[in-house]
């Protein structure tokens, strides 16, 4: 269960979204929509605890949260297996055998990550989500540079493995992932110009 109450978040010290509230229950996903620059990334980073919120509450165990964006911490000098093994070790988990099939990486296991194509690298980055064992995922445009087949593959993993196992996902995306999830349009939450709380507030 993830409960977000009246969260206000800021980018570069300026509030961008104010009083965002939503609930997501176990095994469910939520898709965030909104034009570029509305603050989807900022909101996801704030919810995941990477930056402080200006106000509001995120009701969830911090140790359940994980944020993922295009910067997915893949080391180009390490092999695919070494990359996944590293993150699994950091989180104290084993690498599940099913991960290779789920992200179509079985043939690439021993390849050096630097020699992968952009799409393959992206799949490796997403596979990281499968080894860290976090319940609540905040995904920022997870399907960038993936082809149609890989998008389906990822949606299938999300639906059948992550959500089916009681996980939660909050996803900012522009395409249709083909998973059954409600959508939340962030446009109405755009922060008013005169809202307080920004870093420069004391100087105005």
């Amino acid at each position: 269960m993830l409960r977000v109450t009246d969260v206000t978040c800021a980018r570069g010290g300026i509030p961008v979204l104010s009083e965002v509230s939503f609930d997501v229950t176990a095994s469910k996903a939520l898709i965030l929509r909104g034009p570029n620059g509305i603050g989807k990334t900022t909101l996801l980073r704030t919810l995941a605890g990477l930056q402080p919120a200006l106000g509001g509450d995120v009701d969830a165990d911090v140790d359940d949260l994980a944020y993922a964006s295009h910067a997915d911490g893949i080391k180009t000098a390490l092999s695919v297996t070494e990359n996944l093994k590293f993150w699994a070790d950091i989180y104290g988990n084993p690498v599940p055998d099913t991960i290779w099939e789920a992200f179509d990486l079985a043939d690439l296991q021993d390849r050096i990550a630097g020699t992968l194509s952009a799409g393959q690298k992206r799949r490796l980055g997403l596979a990281r989500l499968g080894v860290i064992g976090r319940k609540i995922l905040f995904l920022d445009e997870p399907t960038v540079s993936l082809d149609g087949f890989s998008v389906k593959l990822f949606a299938k993993w999300l639906q059948d493995t992550h959500l089916a196992g009681g996980g939660i996902a909050v996803i900012a995306t522009h395409i249709d992932l083909g998973i059954d999830a409600p959508e939340l349009d962030l446009t109405p939450f755009k922060a008013d110009l005169n809202i307080g709380g920004g870093a420069d507030e004391a100087f105005l």
Partner: peptide, 16 residues
């Protein structure tokens, strides 16, 4: 390097 490829941010939110 860890900052550029995002590893540092991921490490910061990891159990380590």
């Amino acid at each position: 390097l860890d900052f550029e490829d995002g590893s540092l941010g991921l490490l910061a939110t990891s159990p380590l």
